[in-house]
Amino acid sequence: PYGGSRTAPVQSVDTHETSGSSRDNGSGSPSTGDVDPAPEPVPAPDADPELSKTHDDTVEIRSDLGEISFAYDGASSGEDFAYQGQSWDSGDNRLTLDVQGTHDGEDSVASWYNGQTGGAAVHTDIDTNDEPQELHYAFCGTLTFLDYGSASVETCFGQGDSGLENNWWMGGADFGRVGGICHVDADAADSQATSLVACLDSDGLSSNEFEVSMGDAHANYFSLYSLSDLPPLALAPLGTAITNFVDSDPPNLTTAEAIALKAFAAKLADASLELPTSWSVSCDGCAWSITDNQLWAG
Score class of each variant (00 low, 15 high):
Leu273Asn: 11
Pro49Phe: 03
Ala71His: 13
Pro251Leu: 15
Asp73Lys: 03
Ala82Leu: 15
Leu164His: 08
Glu17Arg: 12
Met214His: 15
Gly180Tyr: 08
Ala120Thr: 07
Asp216Cys: 02
Arg62Gln: 07
Ala219Cys: 13
Ser207Asn: 05
Ala287Cys: 04
Pro232Ala: 09
Gln192His: 08
Cys140Tyr: 02
Ala71Tyr: 12
Asp247Met: 14
Ser22Ala: 13
Gly172Glu: 01
Thr15Ala: 02
Phe245Pro: 02
Asn25Arg: 14
Val153Asp: 03
Gly3Leu: 04
Ser207Leu: 14
Ser63Cys: 08
Leu146Ala: 15
Ser19Pro: 02
Asp270Gly: 06
Asp187Pro: 05
Met170His: 01
Pro41Tyr: 04
Ser90Gln: 10
Glu154Met: 12
Ser150Trp: 13
Leu205Pro: 00
Phe81His: 04
Gln11Thr: 03
Asp270Lys: 13
Gly160Ser: 02
Leu273Phe: 14
Ala258Ser: 10
Asn252His: 07
Asp185Leu: 07
Thr54Ser: 11
Ala193Gly: 03
Gly4Glu: 07
Ala256Ile: 00
His123Phe: 00
Leu200Tyr: 05
Phe210Val: 01
Phe81Ala: 01
Pro9Gly: 01
Glu17Tyr: 13
Thr243Phe: 04
Leu253Tyr: 05
Pro231Arg: 12
Thr254His: 08
Val178Gly: 02
Asp203Ser: 13
Phe157Glu: 06
Asn244Met: 03
Leu268Asp: 00
Gly172His: 11
Glu79Tyr: 15
Asn293Asp: 11
Gln100Gly: 03
Pro49Ile: 00
Ile181Leu: 13
Gln11Ser: 06
Leu275Asp: 03
Gly4Trp: 05
Ala258Asp: 02
Gly215Phe: 08
Ala297His: 12
Thr291Arg: 15
Gly215Pro: 04
Met170Lys: 00
Gly74Val: 00
Pro250Phe: 09
Arg6Ile: 10
Leu164Trp: 12
Thr117Phe: 04
Leu261Pro: 04
Ala75Asn: 07
Ser90Ile: 00
Ile126Arg: 14
Tyr137Glu: 00
Ser12Arg: 06
Leu146Val: 04
Ser87Ile: 02
Val184Lys: 08
Phe175Tyr: 09
Phe81Gly: 00
Asp203Lys: 15
Thr155His: 09
Thr58Cys: 07
Arg62Phe: 04
Leu65Ser: 10
Cys140His: 01
Asn114Glu: 05
Phe70Asn: 06
Ser19Val: 11
Gln294Glu: 11
Gly180Phe: 10
Thr155Asp: 08
Arg62Thr: 03
Ile126Leu: 14
Ala263Cys: 07
Gly3Phe: 06
Gln11Leu: 04
Glu79Ala: 07
Leu143Met: 09
Val153Ala: 07
Ser12Glu: 08
Ser282Ala: 13
Ala151Val: 00
Gly285Leu: 09
Ile242His: 05
Leu143Thr: 01
Val197Gly: 05
Gly160Asp: 05
Leu235Lys: 13
Asn293Lys: 14
Gly179Cys: 10
Phe70Arg: 10
Glu40Ala: 08
Gly149Asp: 12
Ala38Gly: 00
Glu154Thr: 07
Asp185Phe: 10
Glu79Cys: 03
Phe145His: 14
Ser5His: 13
